[in-house]
Design a protein around this nucleic acid. Structure first.
Length: 655
DNA sequence: GTAGGGTTAG
C-alpha cells in the first residue's frame, strides 16, 4: 500500500480517535507506527497528541519513556503542548524533577516560550519533590514570564509553599490573588492546616461564601492530620446536615479519625455508610478501612476487607502487615509479606518497618537479620533510623543485649533516641540496670526531656527493689521538669468515646464505676488472682498496692464497659501507653470471670516504647509502676469465648 | 488538545 492511500485511510479513521481509543502501550505503539508510515507525524498537532497519549497513559510505566523517545526522534520541533504533556506526566510520577529537563529544552529551543500550563505543572513538580530551590526558581520564572497572576499558578503555589512549610510565602501569594475563588480559598485552608494553623484554617473556611465537597474535605482532613479526630467527625456530621455530597476522600478522613480514636462503632458505621451510599471502593478507601479496623483492634474484619479488595497496592499490603504486627500477629505479618512478594508487589521502606517489627514480635531474630540484609542487597533500599531501631528491638526483645549494643555501635549513622530507647526497653525486660543507665544517659544527651526513658529506668530499678535508684530518677525528673505522660484509656460506648485517666473520678457515672471496680477486685480475689505487686515502685503495704493497681486507666475503662455495654458486646479499650503487666493478666481473668471478650487495642509499637508507670494519686507521691509489655502475640487479651462476641451492634450515627 | 484546591501505610 502506498503511503498516500494509507494517509487517506488514517485521516478517514481519524488518528485522534485512534489515539484516544488505544488502551495499552502496545496499541499506542501500533498507532505510532501507522502515523509514522503515513507521514502524519510531520503534523505538529498529531505529534503532540501522540506524545500526550503516551505520557499520560497509565497502563504501562514504560509509556512515559517511550513518549520521550518519540519527542526526541521527531524531525520537527515539538509544540509547547507536547512538552507540557511530558512535564505534566512527570509532575504526577515518582520522578517529578525530571520535568525540569523539558523546561530547559523549551528555553534552549529559543523560539518556544513556556506558557501558563508549563508553570502550573512545574509548580506541581516542585511541590511534589518537594524542593525549596526548585520552588523558588519556578516561582521566579513564572513571574518573569508574566504568569505570576495566573489563578492556576497561584493556587498551585499556595499548595507548594504549604508543602515546603513556608507560611509567609503562601500568605504573600494569596494576598496577591485578585479575586480569591473556591479553589484558592480551599488551597489556603489546606495550607494553613498543614502548617499547624488549624484555627486560622477554620476561620477561612467559615468565611467562605461558597463551599463544595473539596473544601469540606480539606477542612476535615486538616483536623484529622493534626490529631483532632473529634472535630473532624463533628465537621463530617455538619457536612451531612448541610446536604453536602460526601465522597471517597471524605470517608478516608473519617475512617482515619475513627482509627485514631479507636472508635470501632463509628468506624463500622462509616463502613456501612460507604456501602449504603454506594461509594466506589477505591484502593485508598479500602486501605483506610483496613487501617481503621486494625487500629480499633478488629484485625479479623481488617483482613476480611483485605481479601475482598479487587485491587491492592503497596499501601494496602503495608497497612495490613502493620495491623498484624500491631495486633501481635508477627508470623501472620511475615506470611503476608511472602504472599506480597509472590504477587510481585515491590516492598518499600515502610513495608520493611512492618516486616522487621513482625520478626521482633514473633521473636525471630535470625529471620529479622535476613530481612534487614535483603532490604539492602536485593531491594536496594537504604535503611532509615526506624529500621535500625527495629533491629535493636529485635535483638533486645530476644534478650541479646550485647548484640543490640553491638548493632548500635556498628550503625553507619548517628544512633537516635529510638535505637537507645529500644535498648533501654530491652534492659527493662531483662533487668539490666547497668546497660539501662548507659542507654538513658545516651537518650538524655539527645533529648533531655524524654519522659518515657526516665520511667523505663526507674522501672528497672524497681525490678531489683532498688528504691534509692528509683527515687533518684524521680528526683532527677523533678529537677529537670520532666513530667510523665499520664496513662489514658478510651472506650467507645453508644458511639461516643469515653476517656479515663489514672485515678480519674470525673466521669458522670463514676459512682457506678467505683462499685464495679470493687466487684472486679472481689471476684478477682475469689478467682485466685494475685496482683503483681512485687514490682511496685515504692515500698508500700501490700493491700494498698493492690488497691492502687485497681485504679489504672484501663481498669476504669473496663469497669465502665462492664456497666454500660450489653452482655456479649466486646469491650474494646484503646490506650496511649503500653498496657502494664498486672493489667494484662488481670484483664485475662476479668474476661473469664465476666464471660466477656476484652480487647485492649494496641497503639503502634513505638521506639522507645512508652511504658506505664501510674501515679495512684497525683498528690500522694506514691507511684505504682507496671511491668513489661505483654508477650506477643497476646494483644488480643482474651480468646473468642463468647459466641455473641462476634455479632456486631447496629451501626450508630456519629455523634 | 493540556491546568489550580481534598483522600491511604512507618
Amino acid at each position: 500500500m502506498c503511503s498516500s492511500s494509507l494517509r487517506t485511510i488514517l485521516s478517514k479513521s481519524n488518528p485522534v480517535s485512534l489515539l484516544d481509543s488505544a488502551a495499552s502501550l502496545a496499541e499506542l505503539k501500533q498507532v505510532h507506527a501507522q502515523l509514522l508510515v503515513g507521514g502524519l507525524l510531520d503534523e505538529p498537532r498529531l505529534l503532540g497528541k501522540l506524545v500526550a497519549s503516551l505520557a499520560l497513559s497509565q497502563s504501562d510505566p514504560g509509556a512515559l519513556a517511550y513518549a520521550e523517545q518519540v519527542l526526541s526522534h521527531s524531525r520537527h520541533d515539538p509544540t509547547i503542548f507536547a512538552f507540557n504533556s511530558l512535564i505534566r506526566a512527570y509532575s504526577k510520577s515518582a520522578m517529578p524533577h525530571q520535568g525540569f529537563q523539558f523546561y530547559r529544552r523549551i528555553l534552549r529551543s529559543g523560539h518556544l516560550p513556556p506558557d501558563n500550563y508549563t508553570f502550573t505543572f512545574l509548580v506541581r513538580s516542585s511541590a511534589q519533590i518537594p524542593s525549596v530551590e526548585a520552588g523558588a526558581a519556578t516561582h521566579g520564572a513564572a513571574l518573569r514570564w508574566g504568569f505570576g497572576g495566573d489563578a492556576h499558578v497561584q493556587s498551585g503555589l499556595i499548595h507548594m509553599y504549604a508543602e515546603l512549610g513556608m507560611p509567609e510565602c503562601f500568605r504573600r501569594v494569596y494576598e496577591e490573588v485578585k479575586d480569591p475563588d473556591l479553589v484558592s480559598q480551599t488551597a489556603m485552608v489546606t495550607a494553613c492546616a498543614r502548617c499547624g494553623e488549624i484555627d486560622l484554617a477554620r476561620q477561612l473556611f467559615d468565611a467562605m461564601p461558597m463551599r463544595d465537597s473539596v473544601a469540606w474535605n480539606a477542612m476535615i482532613a486538616g483536623y484529622e492530620h493534626l490529631g483532632r479526630a473529634r472535630e473532624a467527625l463533628r465537621l463530617f456530621h455538619l457536612m451531612q446536615l448541610e446536604g453536602m455530597k460526601v465522597n471517597e476522600a471524605t470517608m478516608v478522613s473519617v475512617l482515619s479519625a475513627c482509627a485514631h480514636m479507636g472508635a470501632l462503632d463509628q468506624g463500622r458505621w462509616a463502613h456501612v455508610y460507604i456501602e449504603r451510599n454506594r461509594l466506589y471502593m477505591t484502593v485508598t478507601l479500602g486501605t483506610s478501612l483496613i487501617d481503621m479496623y486494625a487500629k480499633c483492634g478488629d484485625m479479623k474484619r481488617a483482613m476480611e476487607v483485605f481479601w475482598t479488595m479487587r485491587e491492592r497496592n503497596i499501601y494496602t499490603w503495608s497497612t495490613a502487615m502493620n495491623g498484624l504486627t500491631m495486633n501481635g500477629a508477627g508470623e501472620s505479618c511475615l506470611e503476608l509479606f511472602r504472599l506480597m512478594q509472590e504477587e510481585g508487589v515491590l516492598p518499600n521502606e515502610i513495608t520493611f518497618v512492618s516486616v522487621l517489627r513482625g520478626c521482633s514480635v514473633a521473636g525471630l531474630v535470625e529471620k529479622g537479620c535476613e530481612y534487614f540484609d535483603m532490604m539492602i542487597s536485593i531491594y536496594r533500599l537504604e535503611p532509615w533510623l526506624e529500621h535500625y531501631g527495629c533491629m535493636v528491638d529485635l535483638y533486645g526483645r530476644a534478650g541479646r543485649l550485647d548484640d543490640a549494643l553491638g548493632f548500635i555501635h556498628a550503625m553507619p549513622i548517628e544512633p537516635h533516641v529510638g535505637a537507645w530507647g529500644a535498648l533501654l526497653s530491652a534492659c527493662r525486660i531483662y533487668k539490666n540496670t547497668e546497660l539501662g543507665e548507659y542507654a538513658l544517659k545516651k537518650i538524655v544527651e539527645l533529648e533531655s526531656r524524654n519522659d518515657g526513658a526516665y520511667v523505663l529506668l526507674s522501672n528497672i530499678y524497681a525490678d531489683s527493689k532498688n528504691w534509692d535508684g528509683a527515687n533518684n530518677v524521680r528526683e532527677l525528673m523533678k529537677a529537670k521538669g520532666v513530667r510523665k505522660e499520664p496513662g489514658c484509656s478510651a472506650i467507645e460506648v453508644g458511639g461516643e468515646v469515653h476517656e479515663f485517666f489514672v485515678g480519674d473520678k470525673s466521669h458522670p457515672r463514676y459512682g457506678e464505676i467505683e462499685v464495679m471496680l470493687g466487684e472486679m477486685a472481689r471476684r478477682l480475689r475469689v478467682a485466685g488472682y494475685v496482683a503483681k505487686t512485687n514490682q511496685v515502685l515504692f515500698d508500700i503495704e501490700e493491700e494498698e498496692k493492690e488497691d492502687a493497681l485497681c485504679w489504672h486507666s484501663e481498669k476504669l475503662a473496663i469497669a465502665f464497659g462492664l456497666i454500660s455495654l450489653q452482655e456479649g458486646v466486646t469491650i474494646r479499650i484503646v490506650k496511649n501507653l503500653r498496657v502494664c503487666h498486672d493489667c494484662h493478666d488481670a484483664t485475662k481473668f476479668i474476661s473469664k470471670i465476666f464471660n466477656r471478650e476484652i480487647v485492649c487495642s494496641p497503639l503502634p509499637l513505638e521506639s522507645p516504647p512508652q511504658e506505664e508507670e501510674d501515679s495512684r494519686d497525683a498528690n500522694s507521691g506514691r507511684w505504682v509502676q507496671c511491668q513489661k509489655r505483654p508477650k506477643s502475640p497476646s494483644f488480643l487479651v482474651a480468646p473468642l469465648e463468647n459466641p455473641m462476641a462476634s455479632s456486631s451492634p447496629p451501626p450508630l450515627p456519629p455523634e
